[in-house]
Amino acid sequence: MRKVRFQPQDTVEPFRIDEVAAPVPGPGQLLVNTEVVGVSLGLVRMLRGGTVPATGPGGEMVGRVAALGAGVEGFRVGDRVGGVVFEDVYAQSVLATPAMVTAVPPQVTAAEALALVRGGLVALSALRAGRFEQGESVLVTAAASGAGHLAVQLAKTLGAGRVVAAVRSADKADFVRGCGADEVVIYSQDSWGDPVDLVLDGVGGDLVQRGVDALSPHGRLVAFSAGGGTVDAGSLLGGLKSVIGFSIGLISRRQPELIEQRRAELWDLHAAGRLRPAHEALPLDQIAKAVELIESRGNLGRVLLHTT
């Protein structure tokens, strides 16, 4: 099989495609032949910091079960699945833990499934964490990202009275309007317009405080980025505002039944034509181009690699 070898210290050839033997599933593992794998900001941050694990980074994938390890129940060879694996995801075959994957409906393309399996789950769960109600106004940062563009769509289709998409540059405005945004703001603008009831922040850093400042009284900000950031407590007190931390990984481990309910909701919304994942796809050997696309913030929707 083909897999990516990461060499972040090699400035000439940081990525190399190797031909290696497929892994063998151990007890409690699935072997999955991948169709697509995702490229995310998390991978870019690993590469910047030179912290790519020796086993190869994990991430999201969609593919078909090729073999079952001892003790695995609920799956069969040939099942189409999507989810997260913990290492060596950038390969044609990967080892997966059954609890971290889910069945993919046959009518959903691999690219759409990859966008929904993680990005859609983050977007929907962040809305729920923010106690979103119909008629409320919602602002989404990183609105053109894999999770952000789905958060814009979900907010609109679930009944938001006004959806504001916040993006880095004006060249993404048409894209996020096509996702359902009523208004588009650029991060650098002095004002982000009228206050909103809920902010979903997928960027972190200085934008966390900008998001809090954009809230109306009793407003909530859900922070789902790994980008960190600080908030002035005084800016919360006067407006009775709140900041809610969110981790899809923690929810997946503690409330797997809730995750399955939300995945089912996402599949239903997609089947009804109310959720349209956008993606930019490249072949596996163009991983360098995919990373550059993420690093430059040039992507519109999810970035993924075809492995077949």
Rank of each mutant, 00 (worst) to 15 (best):
A144Q: 12
A151T: 09
G135W: 12
A160R: 07
G148Q: 03
R210P: 02
G178H: 01
R162Y: 12
P195C: 00
Q209G: 00
L139W: 12
G180Y: 12
S169L: 08
C179N: 09
A166E: 09
V203D: 02
L139M: 15
A181E: 04
A160W: 07
A181W: 09
T157W: 11
T141C: 09
T157R: 15
Y187M: 01
A143C: 09
Q209K: 05
G135P: 07
V185R: 15
T141L: 13
I186L: 15
S137E: 10
D171A: 13
G202Q: 10
G161V: 08
G193H: 03
G205N: 08
H149E: 05
L200I: 14
A143M: 08
R210N: 00
L154P: 02
V199A: 12
A173R: 15
V152N: 12
V163P: 03
D206K: 15
W192G: 03
L139T: 08
C179V: 01
V164T: 10
V138L: 11
A155R: 11
A173G: 13
G178L: 06
S145G: 15
A173T: 14
L198P: 07
V185D: 05
V167E: 05
A147S: 15
V196R: 10
Y187Q: 08
Q153T: 01
Q153Y: 08
C179Q: 14
S191R: 14
L200E: 01
L139G: 05
S191K: 10
G148L: 10
Q153E: 12
Q209R: 04
G193W: 00
D190N: 11
R177F: 10
D190P: 12
P195H: 05
L198M: 10
V138C: 07
V140G: 06
A143Q: 09
F175I: 00
Y187K: 07
V163W: 07
L207D: 01
K156G: 01
I186W: 05
D182A: 03
V140W: 13
G161S: 09
A165C: 02
L207C: 01
A142N: 11
G193M: 00
A181H: 05
T157Q: 14
V167G: 00
R210V: 00
L198R: 06
G204R: 01
D171T: 11
Q189R: 12
E183A: 02
V167L: 03
D190W: 02
A142R: 12
A166L: 14
A170C: 02
